[in-house]
């Protein structure tokens, strides 16, 4: 059951007031402009045991993602396609407010929104990943672990998952006696586009990009918009307990396109350098 609750971080009234005053003047408490994204660091290929991996830092938020490839049965209704399974976990290392245990609704939402961006943009051409249609297909696991949480986990996790996929080499399986056998060779994954998610939050009447944990604790509403390489929209998720006007949504969508292009260039560059 979904229940309203207080923010995990409790921001003092004075600090909140300070934040509102500052944002209304067009500057944030950490000195950034309203549409400024914190410095992004991307490292790929750091986990040798994975088929692909990436570590992404946005400011102090840090996520490690790994790709593992197996073979298995296809999903029901998608018999001629490979299976993509994305998970996300916020580790207890990430913040003093997180405890070990089954994922809470925010973590479930995180994984599903990141999954939606990758799946709906058709980043991976899953139709090329069936071995025996209806019986044996590639199963691609993308597992994301948040190791430090300082806001904007949606974007950090999405960039980590996307970078790990771009960095990945899939094993080549062959069918012998209706069984999949690893040939020991490697191939590039069938990538078609680079999805980029951009998260904006509304605090008072201002909309800011890439919120910190402290800003998220004061936000009224959040929106995560994923664009593909053609700068079209592939997935959107509004979150938090506030609302947006139609005008604000249109503006956020336009911003997501422009900023997404900058991040996309960065993802492409970083994953190339890692190979």
């Amino acid at each position: 059951m979904s229940s309203s609750r207080r923010s995990t971080i409790i921001v003092e009234h004075l600090r909140k007031q300070q934040m509102w005053d500052s944002i209304s003047k067009g500057k944030r408490l950490d000195g950034r402009a309203l549409d400024e994204i914190r410095p992004i660091e991307i490292e790929v290929g750091l986990i040798k045991k994975a088929n692909g991996s990436a570590r992404v830092k946005i400011g102090n938020s840090e996520v490690v993602a790994g790709v593992k490839v197996e073979t298995g049965e296809p999903f029901e209704g998608l018999e001629n396609k490979g299976a993509l399974i994305l998970s996300a976990e916020v580790l207890p290392t990430a913040s003093p407010y997180i405890e070990p245990g089954p994922p809470d609704e925010e973590t479930v939402e995180l994984a599903r929104v990141v999954d939606r961006g990758i799946r709906e943009s058709e980043m991976l051409d899953l139709s090329k990943l069936a071995l025996i249609p209806g019986e044996i297909v590639y199963v691609i696991f993308v597992d994301c672990s948040v190791i430090n949480a300082d806001g904007n986990l949606f974007d950090a996790t999405s960039y980590a998952a996307v970078s790990a996929l771009m960095n990945s080499k899939l094993p080549v399986f062959e069918i012998r006696d209706r069984k999949a056998v690893d040939t020991g060779e490697k191939q590039n994954p069938p990538l078609t586009t680079v999805p980029v998610s951009i998260t904006a939050v509304r605090i008072g009447e201002s909309v800011i990009l890439d919120p910190t944990a402290e800003e998220e604790a004061c936000m009224d509403a959040r929106i995560t918009i994923t664009t593909n390489s053609d700068q079209n929209f592939a997935a959107v998720q509004k979150g938090s307990t506030g609302a947006f006007t139609v005008e604000q949504l249109k503006r956020a969508a336009a911003t997501a396109r422009i900023k997404g292009e900058e991040i996309r260039a960065k993802l492409r560059e970083s994953t190339k350098a890692g190979k």
Partner: peptide, 30 residues
């Protein structure tokens, strides 16, 4: 959508739309 306050309280999207289609879609849904 809250019709009197004119505020959107839920927005999700699955699937690809260009910017015009996105704007049109929001307006149609409203």
């Amino acid at each position: 959508y809250m019709p009197h306050l004119e505020l959107v309280t839920l927005l999700q999207l699955d699937g690809v739309l260009n910017e015009d289609q996105f704007n049109q879609c929001v307006e149609e849904a409203v």
